[in-house]
Amino acid sequence: MERTDILHQPPAYSLRSVTRAFLGREGTAVRALDGVTFDSPAEAITCIVGPTGSGKSTVLRILSGLDRPDGGSASVAGKDPAAMTGRIGYLTQQHTLLPWMRVRQNVGLPLEIKHVPAGEAAAQVAAICAKLGLTGAEDLYPHELSGGMQQRAALGRLLASEARSWLMDEPFTALDERTRHQLQGLLIGLVRERRLSVLFVTHAIDEAVALADRIVVLSAGPGRVVGTVDIALPHPRNRLSPEYGQLMERIRTSIESVL
């Protein structure tokens, strides 16, 4: 499928000259973001890549509404992120499953919070678990699952939330390569099927090229946008094709030029 059409829709995520600084150890301000501006297409995957300390996670925290920019503006689907509670899915290595709840309860948590009747919620959870390959694991606790299954359950919770704006911070980094590729495929399928708008932070160039419709490259801290690359290759992408290799090289050069 040709994705360029989608790139002309109004942006799902928009940052305009966003700056953000944190208090450093010696009491001095450490700038994390220095005037970051980019748009992220709706119903597509945008990957943010950049070296450690480029403020990638800060971008996601601001767009989730958990953090505010010092200057500039950020919006999700044209609205203030703080007004989007319950409509933004947020998945990081920390923001995952609650360890004292079974998979079933974790996946169904958004429904419980919205007071969806128990029977209806159970049916939805069962459908989501079946879809994500979690059938049979519903009654296990997170620590009883493999890393891949944990992330599947975390994706299940995002699906149950019915949020269509997903902010994902290196969700697959800790997984082995095979599992990572499986979950990348799963994510691409979900984005198309549910018309999700995903902003995906990763430091792995390969992962960005495999997933993204647009790649935003941030510089080393303080983060600035040093390049934007739109990718029109259809999914699933052949990792061995020459175009793929050229894109990898292009992104790598772009990152290394600003290190």
Partner: peptide, 23 residues
């Protein structure tokens, strides 16, 4: 992170207490 997750899902103070803080 647990508190933030629930806040983003739109949990009330009461739900925060029963779903995260107490457990």
């Amino acid at each position: 992170a647990y508190i933030e997750s629930l806040r983003l899902l739109g949990a009330s103070d009461r739900q925060m207490l029963t779903k995260v803080v107490l457990p």
